[in-house]
Design a protein around this nucleic acid. Structure first.
Lengths: 127, 127
DNA sequence: TCTAAAATGCAACTCTGTTGCAATAGTGCG
DNA sequence: CGCACTATTGCAACAGAGTTGCATTTTAGA
């Protein structure tokens, strides 16, 4: 049982701060640009993985296939990520609509473990 | 107004047939494997683009970011793609649940142009 | 049959993400 | 405080997906 104890590092702290401060989900390239030369490209990937693993952030795949990350905000209780994401086709921002939870009916034969609802269009700023 | 007239080619026919015959959505790599040496890797990309452009197939981004394609079946009327996709975590199949259409309520300030609902878990075969 | 343009093949390239390994730096303990 | 253990980082090299330019082939229509 070798339990790994996470360490506090500059990169981890900075990246988590950036995500927590951002109103929209950020792509790896956004983060890379924002941290400047603080750490390596690979480190960012690894930090994002660790933060996601730890449940501090969640990973979102946009409709166009780009991967983004957002800090978990209202996930404290139960930690479900079945809320809706909105992807703006103009400014390419991806935002979490934490309080929009869609409903659907599925045959019993399917076991749902995760959901991903993404709406695409124009956000309030770009409409 | 130079209208491009589409041509019927071996690659296009074959790829469309494959997609029409498949119960699940196929990735580029699946198709590449299935067509054998019939055509180049790049040609597959271009044919898929053209078929999607023509509305014969639609492009789906899976929850893990992989891109897949499926023939349009029930899209004849209105041609909306707001049905649900199911992604199996075990066999990695991606299937369209054409008759499952979720409902949700969104603030008026958002303009929705496209939707992408993907559920992930275990399909009837793998459950 | 002939021709314009659509489609293909090939090579080279970009972008995103991963992996192995040596070097660096937190963290707990004495 | 100083040490040891190991999580974390940087670097380089690699893998996979997708794109682009260009010369060549092929289709469809006249």
């Amino acid at each position: 049982m070798d339990v790994k104890t996470a360490r506090k590092t500059a990169a981890k702290t900075k990246i988590h701060e950036l995500l927590a401060a951002s109103k929209t989900a950020l792509a790896h390239s956004d983060i890379q640009h924002m941290v400047g030369g603080l750490c390596d490209r690979v480190t960012i990937y690894r930090v994002l993985d660790r933060l996601a693993e730890a449940g501090a952030i969640h990973k979102i795949v946009d409709m166009d296939g780009t991967v983004k990350y957002a800090a978990c905000r209202m996930c404290s209780a139960g930690h479900h990520h079945n809320h809706v994401h909105f992807s703006c086709q103009k400014c390419h921002a991806l935002l979490c609509l934490e309080n929009v939870v869609p409903s659907y009916t599925l045959p019993e034969t399917y076991t749902v473990l995760e959901t991903n609802f993404t709406l695409s269009g124009l956000c309030p700023q770009c409409a």
